[in-house]
Design a protein around this nucleic acid. Sequence first.
DNA 1: AACGTTGCCAACCGCGCCAGA
DNA 2: ATCTGGCGCGGTTGGCAACGT
Length: 358
Amino acid sequence: MGRPPCCDKIGVKKGPWTPEEDIILVSYIQDHGPGNWRSVPTNTGLLRCSKSCRLRWTNYLRPGIKRGNFTDHEEKMIIHLQALLGNRWAAIASYLPQRTDNDIKNYWNTHLKKKLKKFQPGLDGHGHEEFRSSSHSISKGQWERRLQTDIQMAKQALCEALSLDKSSTSPLADSKPSDHDGHNIDSGNGTRPSYPSTASSCTYASNTENIARLLEGWMKNSAKSAQATKSSPGPNHNAAQDYSFNSFIPTSGSSSSEGATTPDHHQGLEYSLLSFNSSVSDGSQSVASVPDEKPNLTPDQGCVFQEENEPVLDQIHHQQVPLTLLEKWLFDDGAIVAPQDQEDQLNSMSLDEDTALF
DNA sequence: AACGTTGCCAACCGCGCCAGA
DNA sequence: ATCTGGCGCGGTTGGCAACGT
């Protein structure tokens, strides 16, 4: 009551975001922090609905997002977690802080699903139950024992995966050069790990990375459009894809000379952003490697795994989770592992082995 | 070279939950 | 207690690029 309508849908722009819009959004969020999405379009003048702004931020612009190919480890994590959690992409994404749920979802649908299909023909979207019920005619007692083993293994595997991830990214920061951030999935209805939705200094400092990418894409586009005819403006999303971590943003005004399409106020913004970006000396340097990043992880951010871990394990206890893959691993091993051997086997069971099945 | 098909991914849509009025 | 808006999530779609014929 009394609240204005969410999205009047009149004059609301849809479709791909332009670099200009991105920059406006990023700079606004940098000043005000994410959240209060409803006020974003009005305060920024963006002709986008609040939802679109939020989506753009969470899926593309927020700091620390790793783009590009998924690593083997990430792939394995996804497979593990999907087996455990199902299509709860947000929950899965919470274990892969550098990836968005959308990214993971897309990757699953385009890559991993196929691999699974290959691996388990006839196992499609609703195949878990089929697989579970029909492919193994085992006695109920046996099945229950296996389920128990599955649960144990699932927990172990998850913990292992998480500890692996921790060790390689700890705490939530990847030691690899290219990623990490302090995980920024919005806190909300509780399905995502809690972390401050208000601005944290590290979060916004790292915005420079995304801004750099934005600007680079923008400049590339400008250069392109300056060189090429304007007949093919090019898809905006491609411009976005062109944003590279590896390139250096020249701080000269070169872009403005090319950027005939750049509005004046954007140029000013660009300059300020570029100088801001200069604190990140190397364009290839990841957000994670920005020295100020890791120490600024809030306790909430640092505890993402722990916080999320419990619910997941609780789910394993309290609800049916798809354990098909785990079952498969067990069955493929040809025998139920004796309890005393489980630990040893689990210790020797690397993620590589697990997913080598694919 | 032209056309058709497939793959990929950013963005949208609709639903549900939660909190505020 | 009820209604409404804000927000997050998962599923789906649109459009471009790559690939194949």
